[in-house]
Amino acid sequence: MVAFEALVFPLRIAQAILAIIILSLIAYVINSWSAPYYYYSWSPSSANFLLFCSIWTILVLVYLVVAPLRFQQATHKFAILGVEFVAMIFWFAGFIAYAVFITGCSDAWGVCRASEAAVTFGAFEWLLFLFSTFMAAAHCWRTRNTNTTKHDPAIEVQAATV
């Protein structure tokens, strides 16, 4: 069996870094779409949803890192699985919807390049959440015949020992 506890902290760091990168890229894109010197005064809803996904991910990561360490009663195994699953579905829907929207983008426009980068990073973020959802689902499957509702300590970020 793979030692998941060795993978969780780097996984959460990678998820946070990608969320921040996507947040900055998509904020630039949304700002450029609604800038007064362009003809448009709106931003695409799929870009707005990708912005929501990055903000949602930051909130989810705060829950997934802090709750197991400080609030044991808030870390039910199905709650963690649900949060991971919802984040994974949001990222899948977000990067697919925005990728479809930017298919006719001109290569010379800087906003198109930032959009393509946001979609690419969004796909990687989805893969990371797919993996972490699989880890949470595997724990729920392993403990299906027990009365335990606790989360798997192997998939929590371990507190540093001094």
Rank of each mutant, 00 (worst) to 15 (best):
A114F: 04
C112L: 02
F92C: 06
E125Y: 02
Y98W: 10
V100S: 05
F131T: 05
L128D: 04
A99Q: 12
A93Y: 02
A97H: 02
I96Y: 06
V111R: 11
S106N: 14
A114S: 12
V100P: 01
G104D: 07
E125N: 05
L130D: 03
A137M: 15
I96M: 09
G104L: 09
L128E: 07
V119P: 10
A99L: 11
A97W: 03
W91A: 03
T133W: 01
G94P: 07
A99K: 11
A136C: 04
A93Q: 02
A99W: 13
Y98N: 10
G122W: 00
S132L: 00
V100G: 04
F95K: 00
T103L: 09
I102Q: 11
M135P: 05
C105S: 11
F101M: 06
A136T: 09
T103W: 10
F95L: 06
H139Y: 15
A137D: 02
A114V: 04
A108V: 06
T133M: 02
M135E: 11
E125G: 09
I102K: 08
R113Q: 15
W91D: 07
W91S: 06
I89P: 01
F134K: 04
T120G: 14
S115N: 08
G104T: 03
W126T: 06
W91M: 07
F90P: 00
F95W: 12
W126M: 05
A136M: 03
D107E: 15
A114K: 05
L128S: 14
A93F: 06
S115A: 15
V100A: 08
A97M: 01
M135K: 03
F101K: 08
C112T: 02
R113S: 14
G122C: 01
A117Q: 13
E125L: 14
F90M: 12
V111G: 15
M135V: 13
F121G: 04
L130Q: 04
A137V: 06
F134L: 08
E116N: 13
A138S: 15
F124E: 11
F90A: 15
A117S: 15
V111D: 15
E125K: 06
I102D: 07
A97P: 00
G110P: 14
C112W: 01
G104A: 05
F131P: 00
S106T: 09
R113D: 09
F131L: 14
A108H: 11
H139K: 12
V119N: 04
A136D: 07
S132F: 03
R113L: 11
A93H: 00
A99V: 08
S106I: 09
T103C: 05
F101Y: 14
F92I: 02
F101L: 09
R113V: 13
A137Q: 10
I102Y: 06
L127D: 06
A117I: 10
W109S: 02
W109C: 02
S115F: 08
F121P: 01
A93G: 07
V119M: 02
